[in-house]
Design a protein around this nucleic acid. Structure first.
Length: 193
DNA sequence: TCTAGGATCGGCT
DNA sequence: GCCGATCCTAGAT
């Protein structure tokens, strides 16, 4: 399991290093593990695309202002959940959005949660889909990813994404954020290449 | 209390 | 590849 120190670093570094890591979800139904293939950095008060931009402190984003290594889960479009990991430190308001991954174990559970008709490659290729596959909801907001009691954590199994396979792009769905929409804060790699 | 808009998804062409 | 559903959240009144 990644320790607190992993998250207490610059958000962009954490985002890059999360590629290839394994997110583990353990609850009464069993275990699911997903290797991360796509993440986005949201860099706080000076980032117009970030929920804490301008120093906003609303009830929804409370956990994003908390200690690094905790989860920030919010509802988007009224129906999809998005999972973020808080970075840097308390009072900073930065986080990494977990956008996509590939299932490495717990296939049966994921198919059950996502629906039997969903194609394998579509199981966890979006933020809302990933949360559904991991059974992450608003109730998981604020849990500590450095404490197994929460049933959600991230670990390093030694898999490393080579620099040549790591791509940086503009973030998705933040056109409203002006120039910040072009910042290359989206990190991804193609697991099939 | 009201209203606009959103870090998306899945079905259809 | 495009488009419509869907409802919570935050800010305005």
């Amino acid at each position: 399991m990644l320790g607190r120190g992993f998250y207490q670093r610059p958000t962009v570094d954490v985002a890059r290093d999360l590629l290839g890591k394994i997110v583990v979800r353990r609850n009464g139904e069993g275990d699911v593990a997903v290797r991360l293939t796509e993440v986005e950095a949201y860099v706080g008060v000076d980032d117009p695309a970030c929920h804490t931009s301008g120093g906003r402190r609303t009830e929804r984003v409370r956990s994003m202002w908390g200690e690094a290594g905790h989860a920030y889960v919010y509802l988007i479009y009224g129906l999809h959940h998005c999972l973020n990991v808080v970075t840097v430190g308390e009072g900073v308001g930065e986080a990494v959005l977990i956008r996509a991954g590939v299932v490495v174990s717990g296939w049966d559970l994921v198919r059950c949660r996502r629906g039997a008709r969903v194609a394998d490659r579509s199981l966890t290729d979006g933020p809302g889909k990933l949360c559904q596959a991991l059974a992450v909801t608003r109730g998981d907001d604020g849990i500590d990813l450095c404490d197994p009691v929460g049933g959600l954590w991230i670990c390093d199994d030694g898999f490393a994404v080579e620099e040549s396979r790591c791509e940086r792009h503009a973030r998705v769905g933040v056109e409203h954020a002006g120039e910040a929409a072009t910042w290359p804060l989206r990190f991804l790699y193609d697991p099939d290449s």
